[in-house]
Each structure stands twice: as C-alpha cells, then as structure tokens.
Design a protein around this nucleic acid. Structure first.
Lengths: 204, 204
DNA sequence: TCATTTACCGACGCTCATGTCGGTTAGGGT
DNA sequence: ACCCTAACCGACATGAGCGTCGGTAAATGA
C-alpha cells in the first residue's frame, strides 16, 4: 500500500485517483469476486465506507476503472494503428505500441482482456465491447492483406476468425512476457513479425 | 438441470458423476467464486449437503473436475500430436483434434484454459501445469520448423514465446467459434494452416 | 424378513462482504 | 477568527455461502 504520510485529508479527486489506482491493481491481480472493497480501501489509505463517497457500488467502481484504462489503451495504440506507412510498418508499429501498453500497465491489460468474472452481465457487456473494438480496428488495419495473401474477403466470417487468431496470439505473447520480463521488447516485436509474415512453411 | 426421475436413490459413483458433470458446466460458465455449491447441487438433483459426502470442499471439487477434464483432453489430442506424417500434417491433425475437443466439450476448454479465478494458489498451480504441458507438447511438435524457418533455437526463450503465440491464437479461434458455431470445423482448420504456413507477407 | 450399510437431508453456526447512517473534524473560504 | 463544506470514520443491519452434525429412510444382502 502506498502510504501518503501519517495523517492528511485529501481533496475528493485526489483520493478518488488513489482509489481507482488501487482498484486497478487489486481487481487485476485477484479478479472481481475475490477482491473486497475493504482491501482496496486499505490499499488506498482510507476506511472502507469512504469508497461509497466516490462510487455507489463495487461493480460501478470496476466498470469505471475499466473505462478509464480503456481510454488509456486507445491513447497508446490508437494513433499507431491508423498511421502512415506500409501495412507491414503499421503492423509492426501497432504491435510495438500494444506491447508498450502491456509493459507499462500490465494490470490494465489483464483487466481489459483476460476473460474473468464475466458472469456479471454489465462486466460482460463492457468487455465484449472493448474486445470487439479491438477486433474491428485490427480488421481495418489488415483487411487488404488478408484479401491479397490469404485470399479471403475481409468481411467474411472466417476472416474475422483469423484476425481473432492474431489478436489473441499477440496477447498471449504479452502474457508470456509478464512471466519473462527480461526479454527485450524489440525482440518480441520482431519475432511475431517474422513468424506471421514469413509463415512456418518455408522449409517445404 | 437434468431430472433423472421423480425420486430415486443412486449409488455413490453415479451420483458423483452427475455432480462433476453439473460442476463442470456451472464452474465453466460463471467462474469459481460466482458459483455456489447449492447451485451445483440443485443442478445435480440433490441437496447441498450431499456434496460433502463426495468432496471435502468446493475447491477440491473444482480441482477434481479440472483433472478429470484434462485427462479427457489428453485422450483427444495426445495421439495426434505425436503421430506420423510430415510436420505440416501433424500440425493440421493436432489443430483439428483441439477444435474437436473445443466443440464437443466447450465447458472443459473454458475451465482448463481461460484465465479465471487464479487468485487461489491451488487453482493457479494446476492451471499453470496444464498450460505448460500444452506448451511443451507443441514445442516438441514444431521445434524443428521453428529452427529451419524462423531461424530460432527451439530451446531459446523467444521460441517459447512464438509457441505461446500459436497456442493462444488457436485458442482464440476456438473462443470465436463458440460465438459463431455455424462455421464448419474444416474451414477453421484450413484458415490458420494457410495463415501460419503462408504468412501475411507474400504480397510484398 | 430383518439388519446393516449408505445415500440423503434439515437445521445450525460461523465467517465475511456489501451497503447505510449518523456523527466528527480537518481545512479552505471569507 | 470563524463557519461550513466535505472528507472521513465506526457501528449497524442484512444477506449469502461454506462446512458440520445428527437423524431418516431407501436399498442391499443374508
């Protein structure tokens, strides 16, 4: 927990920021149901009931944190994905940006994309929306290449499945990176680029 | 819930099988913390306390179901992955087998591989073991191709990351398939095969 | 038929977490 | 210097879920 000093009374927004920060870490590490508001409150240096001065319920708190981190993600990746350059350059840049996000905000990545606690309808809906936005963005990025190389209409369902393969695969690399943080980011960008652009079949 | 009739007393193992079956479905659909033993008991057609005649605790029940379904997975996929044929043929066969498992036992796939409820140390450990076994098996399957085409020593860490990319990517396709069940399995096998063997870069 | 095993259940105790309410006091505005 | 906004907290009510215990009656077998 981040002790801000022995005793001091903060202004609303500052305390709220501390709370969302703590909530992000704990929700991401333990999941929604396994974390209690008391835990988050303690980590934020405050009594449990103060939570209700800022958020009406545990669920709303989680949803607020998710929205907040999603806009952070969009700031990280959004510009790269629609930028200039060849598709290959844009793809490398996008992958790099996503790994940058995963590195500097690992808890946010987990909270947004790990499939956890989706029994709650509201949580499920929000996550689904975020995932669909990601899929759509990548489809727009790669649509042409999917057509010319794999020979698929990017609007056909099977093309969507291929985009899903890329996205979840790259996210899997990001998860692997959490367990092997010594690997330099550049290598994690170049590896998938070679694999995906070259393919496995060049030996035949 | 599967009503077995108005009233009849089953022998131990039969009732136990009903319980694990119900537990698989509900644990997979709602996650560990969000499901109660009472729910599973009702679905199994029995009072809640009967659960304790078969399993000492909720956690042990989940772990038992996971172990059970993991051996089912090994039966599905194990033979294919070490079978005969070119690496490409074995890879196609393995992908097909995994999709077959995902199709016929979607709840089992979710329970074994979705990253959920890993706050519990025991659950985390078991899942990690299952995932590592999967990674190791695929590394053995593809090690040579990774060397000859991507130019990586299959024992180097970065090669492990690439295997992780493949595995999580394919699992992502399986997840996508749950939401689009009309897609024929053969197409879901051929799509990734073309994508991964051909690569995206043949247009340049 | 009768005894024994065992599948099954209701009621209880306990813990833990959410959300409410009223009160207290620090600190900024005037 | 004083007031009053609002940041903060303790105590309470409520409910859900886990695990225990002792009892009941169905099935089995002799």
């Amino acid at each position: 927990m981040a002790e801000t000093g022995p005793k001091s009374r903060m202004r609303g927004p500052a305390r709220k920021a501390l709370i969302t920060e703590a909530a992000l870490e704990i929700f991401a590490s333990k999941g929604y149901h396994a974390t209690s508001l008391g835990e988050i409150a303690t980590a934020a240096g405050v009594a449990r009931t103060v939570m209700y001065d800022h958020f009406p319920s545990k669920r709303v708190l989680l949803l607020a944190v998710m929205q907040e981190q999603n806009t952070a993600l969009v700031e990280y990746v959004g510009a790269r994905i629609t930028g200039a350059g060849t598709p290959r350059e844009r793809m490398r840049s996008t992958i790099d940006a996503y790994f940058g996000f995963a590195q500097s905000k690992p808890a946010a990545r987990r909270l947004l994309f790990d499939r956890t606690d989706e029994d709650d309808p509201a949580i499920r809906t929000v996550r689904q929306g975020i995932r669909e936005a990601r899929t759509q963005a990548v489809t727009a990025l790669l649509g042409n290449d999917i057509r010319t190389t794999v020979g698929l209409n990017p609007h056909e369902p099977i093309a969507e499945a291929m985009v899903e393969l890329l996205i979840t695969g790259l996210d899997g690399v990001a998860q692997w990176w959490e367990r092997h943080p010594d690997m330099p980011r550049s290598m994690l960008v170049e590896g998938p680029m070679r694999l995906l652009w070259t393919g496995l079949g060049h030996s035949e």
